[in-house]
Simulated assay, not measured.
Amino acid sequence: MPVLAQQIVGGALYPQIWGYFQEGIQSVSDLLAKVLEHRYTYVPRGEVKDTLALGKKLGLAVARAHGVPLTVLSPLKSGASHHAELAKLTIVTERSGRIRDGGVVLAWCPRFKTMEQLQHVENCTIVLVEWIPGEMEAWAKVAGAYNVVTDEVMTAQLDANARRALEGIVHEGYKGWTDNISDRVVRGYLDDLQAADAYDRDLVLAYARQTKWERAIERLEKIIDKYEASSVPSATTGTPRRRVL
């Protein structure tokens, strides 16, 4: 087994996580090779088996493979520093530090606000390890991330019309969706998505989060809440999920 694959396995880790993977992944070497093909990697939170340990080791191994230091992005420094492997690394949080473009980032159990630190980067390789199951799935679809559990590249499946509507929503947020005009215009774009059978609340928000901060996203959510209450009450993709740190 190659050295990097051995580093991922880490002894007892192998039997703990291997039951997750699909037949397309036959070995740890296969998994690492797949991950290295992609700029974005998504490690969904396991509800039965542990995927956190796997994600941590993947981040470290990807950085070694690229020959660069690993930067850890975490909501709080304490969220990463109590892991011995991460404590000695550069840790960027929501309130401190800045991600330098061009390296490898381990987004360690991030919140949506944590991900604001990645808005400016263009050339980083990102391994995102999810905390709340499914919370970052829409991010993975918009980013086209490789899902290590399902062995697939995720996609939002947006056609040109859907992308135009989403871009329109983002454009209307140039002032943070604070006025009545942006409210009406956004509702029109949401109608366009609904008519095209492309409406997905989580995808709309994930698309906007690529460039907008959470303070503005909260206002967009209120517009969407009103839209869903009056137009498409069955279109929601799930109840809001809040993290408890």
Score class of each variant (00 low, 15 high):
49 K>A: 15
88 K>V: 15
58 L>D: 12
101 D>S: 01
122 E>Q: 14
145 A>V: 02
54 L>V: 14
91 I>M: 11
136 M>H: 07
48 V>E: 14
120 H>Q: 14
76 L>W: 09
121 V>T: 15
78 S>L: 13
36 L>A: 10
91 I>E: 13
55 G>R: 10
109 C>I: 03
146 Y>K: 02
126 I>Y: 03
123 N>C: 01
78 S>K: 13
41 T>N: 07
138 A>H: 03
82 H>T: 15
59 G>E: 12
115 M>K: 11
151 D>A: 02
146 Y>P: 08
100 R>C: 01
95 R>L: 09
137 E>R: 14
97 G>P: 02
54 L>W: 01
94 E>G: 03
102 G>N: 03
147 N>D: 15
79 G>E: 10
154 M>P: 05
132 I>G: 00
146 Y>C: 03
120 H>R: 13
74 S>M: 07
69 P>I: 08
131 W>M: 08
133 P>D: 07
70 L>E: 07
47 E>P: 02
83 H>K: 05
79 G>H: 09
98 R>F: 09
125 T>S: 11
97 G>W: 05
50 D>V: 08
31 L>W: 06
138 A>R: 04
95 R>C: 02
54 L>G: 06
155 T>D: 12
115 M>Q: 11
83 H>R: 06
121 V>I: 15
33 A>Q: 05
117 Q>V: 03
59 G>I: 11
119 Q>A: 13
93 T>Q: 08
153 V>I: 14
106 L>D: 10
97 G>N: 05
125 T>K: 09
138 A>I: 01
99 I>K: 07
121 V>F: 07
31 L>N: 07
67 G>I: 11
59 G>T: 11
91 I>T: 12
71 T>L: 04
45 R>Q: 15
104 V>D: 13
106 L>H: 05
132 I>Q: 08
42 Y>K: 02
112 F>C: 04
134 G>L: 13
98 R>Y: 11
101 D>W: 02
121 V>S: 12
140 A>Y: 00
35 V>G: 08
37 E>R: 12
107 A>C: 10
77 K>S: 14
118 L>E: 15
